[in-house]
C-alpha cells in the first residue's frame, strides 16, 4: 500500500491536491482513501491531507504514521512542531519540498539520508502559491511511478472541473511540467508494508491516575492567552496600509477585521497588529478608497530584513 501525506497551509489547496492524486490512483485501478485533516478551518494554519492507495481493499484509517511519501507545499512549515511534517519519516520515506533551497541543505538540516527532492522555484513565483497543489501532485505522481500522464490529466480535469477551463488549463500545465521534471526519478517511492503482529513494539499503556478537579478540569487558568499565540505566523499574504490614501474613515477596516487585529489611533489612522493578523485580506476587500495593498508575506519579510540591515 502507498501511504502519502501532503502538508501545507489552509488555502494552499492540499485537500484538492490529495483528491487529484487519489482520483489519479483510482483511474489507474487502485483502491483509494483520501482525506484532509484540520482543526477549526482557517486560512494559513497548518493542515495536512493524506492518500492511501492499494490494489486490495483498504482497512487502515486515519493519520498516516509511517509515510512512503511526504509532500511539503510550504517550507516554512518544516520547523513548526504542530505541523508534524517530519513525523514518522525514515530512510524509506521520500520527501518532496517546495523550497528555494537545495536538497542537500534540507538533508543536512533534517539529518535525513533518504531521497529528498525540492520543487524548482521557476514552476511558480513563490507568492500566493495558487497552483502549488497541482505542481506538487504532478511531481508526486511521477515520483510514485505508477500514475500515467493521462490519469493525472483526467484527474485534474475531474477534480477542478467546477473552476472553469482557464484555471483547469493553468493547473494542468503546472502539474504536467512538474510531472516532466521528475522523469529521471520515476518510481523512487516504494509502497510500504504493514505492521506485523509477529514482531511489534508493545504500546506503553499507563493507568490514568486520579487527579482532583482543580488539576483535571479543562480550564485555562489565565486571561488573554490568545495574545501570546502569534497567529500572524499563519499569514501567507500581508495587508499593507498606504497612509497617503487612507481617508481616516476610522471604522471600516477595523470593524470588518474578524480578528480584531486593526486598531485605530487618536488621529483616526488604522494600525495592523501583524503579530495577530492572519492575512485573511478582508480589510483589503472592504477599504473604501482601496488604500490597503496585498503583498506576499515572503516578499514583505525580505523587505523587513533589508530595512533592518540598512
Amino acid at each position: 500500500m502507498y501511504r502519502i501525506r501532503f502538508h501545507g497551509r489552509g488555502g494552499q489547496g492540499m485537500k484538492t491536491a490529495s483528491r487529484i492524486l487519489g482520483t489519479a490512483f483510482f483511474l489507474q485501478g487502485y483502491e483509494v482513501q483520501d482525506a484532509p485533516r484540520y482543526g477549526a478551518e482557517r486560512r494559513g494554519a497548518p493542515i495536512f491531507a493524506y492518500v492511501r492507495a492499494s490494489k486490495d481493499p483498504i482497512n487502515e484509517r486515519g493519520i498516516i504514521s509511517q509515510p512512503d511519501l511526504v509532500i511539503v507545499a510550504d517550507d516554512s512549515l518544516v520547523p513548526v512542531p504542530g505541523a508534524g511534517v517530519i513525523s514518522g519519516i525514515d530512510a524509506h520515506t521520500v520527501l518532496l519540498i517546495n523550497s528555494d533551497e537545495d536538497p542537500d541543505t534540507w538533508k543536512q538540516r533534517l539529518n535525513f539520508n533518504g531521497s529528498l527532492f525540492t520543487l524548482p522555484v521557476e514552476t511558480e513565483a513563490r507568492a500566493e502559491l495558487r497552483f502549488i497543489g497541482a505542481t506538487c501532485t504532478g511531481a508526486a505522481a511521477r515520483l510514485l511511478g505508477v500514475i500515467s500522464r493521462d490519469a493525472l490529466t483526467q484527474a485534474i480535469r475531474q477534480e477542478l472541473a467546477e473552476l472553469g477551463d482557464a484555471i483547469v488549463e493553468e493547473n494542468l500545465s503546472r502539474a504536467l511540467s512538474a510531472f516532466g521534471l521528475m522523469e529521471a526519478h520515476a518510481g523512487t517511492v516504494n509502497a510500504g508494508s504493514v505492521v506485523s503482529a509477529h514482531d511489534y513494539q508493545r504500546p506503553q499503556w499507563v493507568d490514568l491516575p486520579f487527579d482532583q478537579a482543580r488539576i483535571s478540569a479543562p480550564a485555562i487558568h489565565a486571561a488573554a492567552t490568545s495574545i501570546a499565540v502569534k497567529t500572524g505566523l499563519w499569514r501567507t499574504m500581508r495587508p499593507l496600509i498606504d497612509y497617503e490614501h487612507c481617508n481616516r474613515c476610522w471604522w471600516v477596516c477595523s470593524t470588518f477585521c474578524p480578528d480584531g487585529a486593526i486598531n485605530v489611533d487618536d488621529e483616526g489612522y488604522p494600525h495592523i497588529d501583524y503579530d495577530h493578523c492572519k492575512g485573511c485580506m478582508v480589510c483589503v476587500a472592504q477599504c473604501p478608497p482601496h488604500a490597503i495593498a496585498s503583498i506576499p508575506e515572503q516578499d514583505a519579510q525580505a523587505a523587513d530584513n533589508e530595512e533592518a540591515r540598512a
Binding site: P203, Q204, W205, V206, L208, I215, I220, H221, A222, A223, T225
Partner: peptide
C-alpha cells in the same frame, strides 16, 4: 483506557504550563 505514557507526559507538560500561568495571574 487505551492511553500511553507519552500521551500522559504531554498532558503533564500542558498542566505544568497551566500551573505557571496560574501563578503569573
Amino acid at each position: 483506557l487505551l492511553y500511553t505514557k507519552t500521551e500522559l507526559r504531554e498532558v503533564r507538560k500542558l498542566q505544568a504550563v497551566a500551573h505557571v500561568e496560574r501563578q503569573d495571574l
